[in-house]
């Protein structure tokens, strides 16, 4: 039982990383009906930029540690930087293709993904080697019964959940959230209602990329290694999480993220090689039973 609870902690921690990333896939898909294949790479950019920003702040270190307000500054600036990159990518690469067949933007997204991975890889000061991630959060161990929980884990899980709840609140309760929902329901009608759809779409990409950067920093804080390809497989898994939960649905993405994180850790505990495959198996099963995902709604084709 103790081991199970211990794995559950790991599962929730991985699940919150997946959930944060899955939110971006789900929101973008909901609003422009496009799989942003480059979304996972925002995670990598977030983690990578945090490394370089932290390097820049190294003068502020006290006893080899960053003070709290510097950590906050590092994380926020990495998130903002990644968020702006998200908006830029949308403006340059996706917006011109919005009225073309869906395939076009999917292919372009693959191109953007290739670029985001390989441009840093080709830069001499980044390169293909994994680099260590600085320790931003304090690492104090707590024992609850037989279960070990670190302060990093607690911070990460709590902050992720706060981010998710506030996003859900923004989308459900605010005027801006209503605009997001309107655009995802019918873009043309929203335009007629006087909603600036371009602005809404830009903000959606901004939010998605900001959350991706957060998940990248959190992921790198648990597994402190960053390389240019990390976004690709974490992105694939988070997308699977979004589909499991029901793509287009915010709560679905969160649910899917936690389901995937927990099952993956449990599967890995049985056999270390089962981890990658399990998400794929769940995906296929979900696609067969409920193609729209657990919380997704089946769309009716307009004929």
């Amino acid at each position: 039982m103790t081991t199970f609870l211990q794995f559950l902690v790991y599962g929730v921690q991985l699940g919150s990383v997946y959930a944060l990333l899955a939110l971006g896939y789900s929101m973008v898909y909901g609003i422009v009906r496009m799989i942003n294949m480059a979304h996972g790479d925002f995670l990598m950019i977030g983690a990578l930029s945090a490394i370089f920003i932290a390097m820049g702040f190294s003068g502020f270190m006290v006893d080899g540690r960053y003070p709290f307000y510097i950590v906050l500054a590092i994380i926020l600036s990495a998130m903002i930087l990644t968020g702006l990159l998200g908006v830029l990518v949308e403006k340059i690469a996706y917006k011109p293709l919005r009225d073309r067949p869906r395939m076009s933007s999917l292919i372009t997204a693959v191109g953007v993904s290739m670029f985001l991975q390989n441009f840093p890889r080709a830069l001499p000061f980044i390169g293909p080697q994994p680099r260590p991630f600085p320790q931003l959060f304090p690492l104090i161990q707590f024992r609850l019964g037989g279960v070990v929980v670190t302060s990093t884990q607690i911070i990460l899980i709590v902050v992720s959940i706060i981010l998710m709840i506030s996003l859900d609140a923004i989308v459900q309760k605010t005027k801006f959230g209503a605009q997001i929902r309107a655009v995802s329901f019918d873009k043309d009608a929203s335009l007629l209602m006087g909603i600036d759809t371009n602005r809404v779409i830009s903000y959606t990409f901004l939010i998605g990329a900001v959350l991706a950067a957060a998940s990248g920093i959190f992921y790198a804080s648990i597994y402190p290694q960053v390389d240019v390809y990390m976004g690709s497989w974490l992105g694939t898994k988070s997308f699977i999480a979004a589909v499991i939960g029901g793509i287009g649905s915010i709560r679905g993405a969160i649910l899917g993220g936690f389901i995937l994180g927990i099952t993956e850790i449990l599967a890995t505990s049985i056999n270390s090689n089962l981890g990658y495959g399990i998400g794929f198996v769940i995906l296929i099963v979900i696609l067969l039973i409920k193609p729209a995902g657990i919380l997704g709604k089946t769309e009716i084709d307009k004929v």
Partner: peptide, 24 residues
């Protein structure tokens, strides 16, 4: 199973498939 469903799921399934074959 993938092609039965409308939508772009094939993209992500084949991406995951390629990586699973490789890691296997």
């Amino acid at each position: 199973p993938t092609l039965k469903i409308k939508g772009d799921y094939l993209a992500i399934v084949t991406l995951a498939f390629g990586e699973i074959v490789r890691s296997t």
